[in-house]
């Protein structure tokens, strides 16, 4: 019954040139749409997969956050042209940085932090934000002294090069004095990066004297952790409000400790009990251990002469 119907209908439709033309049209539109969408989708997916900035690629000063930057930068290279030190490069297809976008590699050429920031002025689209007028407020990345095992200062030497070359010396990098447990009589001056002042210019990484830099500059989102948004630092809140926000706390005795309870700040006056230790603690007190030298603060390389 079905077979009787179909042949009766089919030839009529197939033979009209209009139907053939229609079929051809629909075919071609479908092919064009399919091909076009596939190509665009492929490009979109590729751009999505490659959108992460690799660890050693730094954006020019004033660059928008990476996701916004990739929508705003038209890859014209005007920032590259106006960089007087040839710091900036445009990436090519296959480079780990988004095709055609500007970046620099600190270890090769660091940013010289021009006061007039010509690269930002050159940007026609605002991918480099002109609200950045003070180069010291640039946040191209963040330095991190990643290798404590090879950093000469951590070995007890006075290299200090990263500290000396830092354009924001004593703010972005400071030298923190610590006892050297190896020699037991010297100090170690440890280069210490401060995220509130580091511009990520890369001078420290560029000038690290080691064959492979012990201090490296990373895009900020790679270099930094983040506290949960609801965390408050008690001591900061206390200082800001001129006193504890949760009132005086009941101080519970901590077993094994005499005198001040844990948690009381060192600046508070400590009233040590003048009498002998409570007798209750005596039975559970650990047997006296042979007296050994106090562990010095700082890092212990475990190396003993």
């Amino acid at each position: 019954m079905d077979t009787g119907k179909k042949p009766a209908r089919k030839p009529v439709e197939a033979d009209t040139p209009a139907s053939a033309a229609r079929r051809k049209f629909i075919n071609s539109v479908a092919a064009a749409a399919g091909g076009g969408c596939l190509l665009a989708l492929g490009a979109g997916l590729y751009s999505k997969s490659a959108a992460a900035l690799p660890a050693q690629a730094l954006r020019p000063p004033g660059a928008l956050p990476e996701a916004d930057f990739l929508g705003a930068c038209v890859r014209c290279g005007l920032c590259v042209r106006d960089c007087p030190y040839d710091t900036l490069k445009l990436s090519d297809l296959g480079d780990p940085v988004a095709t055609g976008t500007p970046y620099f590699t600190a270890r090769q050429v660091a940013c010289e932090m021009c006061e007039d920031i010509p690269c930002v002025k050159a940007c026609p689209t605002g991918a480099l934000d002109r609200q950045l007028t003070d180069i010291n407020k640039a946040r191209m990345g963040l330095a991190a002294l990643v290798d404590h095992e090879s950093c000469l200062n951590f070995l007890g030497l006075r290299c200090d090069v990263c500290y000396r070359v830092c354009p924001v010396i004593d703010k972005a990098i400071t030298l923190e004095t610590q006892h050297n447990p190896r020699s037991d009589r010297h100090a170690m001056l440890l280069p210490t990066v401060h995220s509130d002042a580091c511009t990520g210019c890369g001078k420290c990484e560029k000038s690290c004297v080691l064959p492979v830099a012990a201090i490296k500059v990373f895009p900020r989102q790679l270099a930094q952790g983040a506290l949960p948004a609801h965390y408050r630092k008690g001591w900061e809140e206390k200082a800001r409000h001129g006193g504890s926000l949760i009132g005086e706390q009941v101080e519970l005795p901590v077993r094994g400790f005499d005198g001040p309870t844990a948690g009381r700040s060192a600046t508070e006056a400590v009233v040590a009990p003048s009498g002998p230790a409570p007798t209750a603690a005596a039975p559970v007190a650990p047997p006296p251990v042979p007296k050994k030298p106090a562990v010095p603060p700082g890092l212990d390389s475990r190396w003993k002469p």
Partner: peptide
Amino acid sequence: GILLAAAATGTLAWEWV
């Protein structure tokens, strides 16, 4: 497609290739 891709990904997707 490339305009849609730009809107959908928030990046200039076509400029990659």
